[in-house]
Simulated assay, not measured.
Amino acid sequence: MQVIYPPKPRFRLGQLAAHVVVALIVLVVIGGATRVMEAGLACPDWPLCYGSFLPGSQMNLQVFLEWFHRLDAFFVGIVLIIQFSLSLYWAKFLPMWLPWTYGALTCLVAFQGFLGALTVLQLLPSLIVVLHLAVALTLVAIMSGVTQQLLSPGKSIFPLWLRSLGFLSLFSVIGQSLLGSRVATSWAAQRCLNIGDSCNLLRLHRFSAFPVSLLVILFVIISFTQKDVFLKQWPYFVSITFLIISQIFLGVFSIQLGLSEPGLVIGHQLVACLLVAVISALNFKGNGIEGSSQSLLINESNLETCHG
């Protein structure tokens, strides 16, 4: 079977971008685990940990989480610099927007590293931690979109009005995630559950989850009307539905158990990050055909697996 696919430089960059999306999701989840396990200050210095690249005698679960979080961030930064360099080298084979996008992403990762340093040096201020997550989710959303534009170029699979609803769903999920981060980093949930204090923020997060969930589900339901899109992209819509239902249950159980199960809390953040990645990918996905000058006809059997 033969399919239309992007030129080789574009395809290679798309493969690499897909792996970066996975690394970014891992980065967000490990960051969430670091917070849940109260390991944010396990390494008291920055960028090293106890004055070395690999702490030895000080290594434990908390130190490992903080150390691995930094290592993954370093890996993402290096790979983005490589992608930026390749986009400049292959510029004549790539869309004009791509080098600019990679340049902006590289700057954003540098800013993320600066925020990471502040979280340690300023002893985990709540607003800085929330901003740190905001930049991370922005990176996930943009990188997921770039991956789709590289691997599935062309006109959007959605009409403009439906794509607008998709972006509204994406921004609402990011906003809800940041509100949840604010609840967690200000310890509002623990104070509310234990001593009945600071419950307004927790209530806001719980109540806002319903309109956000309804908006995402509405996006999926309305997409049913676009039969050609739904038949081709149904795995995305099934994934979004499964993730939003899982997110609701994880949130409810986490509160019911008094946030005593770290796995549920970490899973809650993982699902939120996956929602951001999947919704963004769907919104940026093209029809796969940009014209003969921008596409390459290859055998499907020769395609390499793209893990992202």
Rank of each mutant, 00 (worst) to 15 (best):
M1Y: 05
P7H: 11
K8L: 08
P9D: 13
R12I: 07
R12F: 11
L13Q: 06
L13E: 02
L13Y: 07
A17Y: 07
A18W: 07
V21S: 15
V22H: 12
I25L: 12
V26Q: 08
L27H: 09
A39H: 04
G40L: 01
A42T: 05
D45K: 12
P47H: 12
L48R: 15
L48G: 12
C49F: 12
G51L: 06
Q58V: 05
Q58T: 05
Q62S: 15
V63M: 09
L65F: 13
V76D: 12
V79P: 03
I82H: 05
I82P: 03
F84Q: 06
S85R: 10
W90K: 07
A91W: 09
P99L: 02
W100C: 03
W100S: 11
V109C: 13
A110M: 11
A110E: 10
A117Y: 01
L118R: 08
L123R: 10
L127C: 05
V129D: 00
V129A: 15
A134F: 02
L139Q: 07
A141T: 06
I142K: 06
T147I: 01
L151V: 06
F158C: 01
L168S: 15
L168W: 09
F171P: 00
S172H: 07
V183L: 10
W187Y: 11
W187K: 09
A189M: 03
R191Y: 00
C192W: 01
R203C: 06
H205V: 07
H205D: 11
R206K: 09
P211E: 14
L215R: 12
F224P: 00
K227W: 03
F230I: 04
W234E: 04
Y236S: 09
V238L: 12
V238K: 09
S239I: 04
S239W: 02
I240Y: 06
S246D: 09
L250E: 13
L257Q: 07
G258Y: 02
G258R: 02
S260I: 03
L264R: 14
C273H: 05
L275W: 06
V278I: 11
S280E: 06
A281L: 02
F284W: 08
K285V: 01
E290L: 03
L296D: 13
L297R: 14
N299H: 06
E300A: 15
L303R: 12
L303I: 04
T305C: 07
T305G: 08
